[in-house]
Design a binder for these strands. Structure first.
Lengths: 237, 237
DNA sequence: CGCCGTGTTGACTATTCTCAACCCAGGTGG
DNA sequence: CCACCTGGGTTGAGAATAGTCAACACGGCG
C-alpha cells in the first residue's frame, strides 16, 4: 500500500474520494541516489515533496563548517511543507540512502486543502507530528549524553519504520554511516564510534557490514529511557 | 493593536471579515502569574491557547529530573496547536513571566479553518514558523557552545519582541532568571552564569536588577553568527 | 536581624572534541 | 593475483567544554 496514503489515513480518517484526490495529486517524481541533494539552501521551491521510500535528511550548516541534521524523513513523510511560508530555504534536503520521492505542486496542495477538510487536517497533523519529533530531538541532544542519546535515536527510527510497515518482528538494520549519525546527534564522528562501541559491549546492538543491527530492542529502550508517545503512532502496527 | 491579529496578518493577508471572525473566536481568558502552569503533562485540552502578553514556555521533563524548555512563546503566539493531534500532552506549559492568555475552543477553530481559507493558511503558517524556530534551537544547542549559544538566544528574543511591537529602539531587557535560561539552552545554571559573565566582560550585555540588558545588539549578532531569516519576519517592524 | 532565592566563584570531575595513527574491506589497475 | 588506494571505523592522548558541589555575596522581606 502507498506509504503516503497509509500515513495520512493514520492522521485523519479519509474517505474514498479524499484518498483518490490525494493519490491523483502526488506526482511520482524521481529516484535519488544516496548523498544527492534534493533541495538546496537558497532555493525557492514551488512544490512540496514526499518520501515514497528511503531516508531524507534536513540539514542546516553552521558557519564554522559543521552540519546539523534537524529532521529525518522516511517512507510516507511529507517534508518541505514549510515552503508554504518560506521565502528562501535556509537548509538543504539530502538523501542519505537511495530514495524515491514524489511531489505535489503548490497550487494543487492549496486546492486540496480548501476543498477537502479531511486532507487539510491530515496535512496539518503531519506538520504537528513533525514538530513533536523535533522537540524530542531537542531534549535528546540537550539532555541525554553519549550512548543514551544514540540509543534513543535508534529506538525512534525503529518505531517509525515499523509504523510504516517497513519492518517485521524486531530485526532492524540502521543503514547510516557514523558520520551521518554524528550529524543527527550533534556529536563528532569519533564520539559516535565510541558510543556505538559502548552499546555493542552492552550487547544492545551488533555490527553488520554497513550499519548497525539491533540486538535487544527492549534493552535499548530501557537504556535510553525511550517512550514512543511523542511519535503519535496511536495503535496501528 | 491586538498582537494576535497583528501576527496573523503578518502570516497571511486577512480581510475585514477574517479579522472579525478571528477576533470573535478568541476568548479572553485569564491572567497567569509567573511560574504558574497552564497545561499539565497528561492533560487532554479541548481548546488552543494564545499568548496575549508575557512569556510562556513549553517544558519537557527528562526522567533524571532535568527540565528542557523546547519552545518559548510571546505576544501573539499560538501555542498548543498540537492538541489537534495529541491524545495526551507530553509536556507542560508554564508562564515564566506574568502573562495574559486567551483561547479558541477546538470546534470553533475547526470551523474557522473550514470556512476561512485565509485563516487556515495563517494558522498553518504559524505552526510552520514555530517548527522553523525549533529547528534553529536544535542547531543552537547542538552546535554552538557557551557564550555564543546564549548570545544567539538573546538575539532571537530581541527580534521576536520587536516584530510584535514590544520594543522600540534597541533597548531591551531579558526578564528571565538564569535557571530558566539554563533550561532553554541545555546548560547548568552555573554555566549560564559564566556565559553571562563572559558577554558582560565583552561589553555586549549589562546587568540591571532582575535580568539582562542588551548593550550592543550588532556585536551580539556578530558574536553569535545570528541570521534572523529563520524567524520569517519578512519586512515589518 | 536572619532567611531565602539568586547569582557568583573556585575546585574538581565528567563529557566531548580534535588530532593523529592505525585498521580493515572493497575496488582498481597492473 | 597482488599492490595500492580510498573511505569508513577504531583507538589513544591531550585539550576544551560543561557539570557538580560547595562556599559565599547580595538584596528583598518578614
Amino acid at each position: 500500500m502507498d506509504p503516503v496514503l497509509r500515513r495520512f489515513r493514520h492522521y485523519f480518517p479519509l474517505n474514498a474520494e479524499d484518498a483518490q484526490a490525494l493519490t491523483a495529486a502526488v506526482v511520482r517524481a524521481r529516484h535519488v541516489a544516496a548523498g544527492e541533494r534534493i533541495v538546496h539552501e537558497g532555493e525557492r521551491p514551488d512544490h512540496i515533496n514526499l518520501v515514497l521510500s528511503g531516508f531524507i535528511a534536513r540539514v542546516k550548516t553552521v558557519p564554522e563548517g559543521h552540519n546539523q541534521i534537524t529532521s529525518l524523513y522516511l517512507d510516507g513523510d511529507v517534508f518541505d511543507l514549510r515552503m508554504y511560508v518560506l521565502r528562501q530555504m535556509d537548509h538543504t534536503l539530502t538523501a542519505i540512502s537511495p530514495a524515491r520521492i514524489g511531489y505535489i505542486p503548490r497550487d494543487q496542495l492549496l486546492r486540496l486543502a480548501d476543498q477537502r477538510p479531511n486532507l487539510q487536517r491530515a496535512f496539518w497533523a503531519a506538520a504537528l507530528v513533525n514538530e513533536s519529533i523535533l522537540a524530542e530531538w531537542l531534549v535528546n541532544i540537550g539532555r541525554r549524553r553519549g550512548p543514551e542519546r544514540l540509543a534513543h535515536l535508534i529506538c525512534e527510527i525503529f518505531w517509525r519504520l515499523r509504523a510504516v510497515g517497513r519492518l517485521q518482528g524486531t530485526d532492524f538494520a540502521l543503514p547510516f554511516r557514523q558520520g551521518e549519525i554524528a550529524e543527527m546527534l550533534a556529536f563528532s564522528p569519533v564520539h559516535v564510534s565510541r558510543a556505538v562501541g559502548r552499546l555493542r559491549r552492552e550487547g544492545l546492538v551488533a555490527e553488520s557490514g554497513p550499519g548497525l543491527v539491533v540486538r535487544d530492542l527492549a534493552g535499548l529502550q530501557r537504556f535510553a529511557g525511550f517512550d514512543p508517545a511523542y511519535l503519535h503512532l496511536s495503535n496501528d502496527a
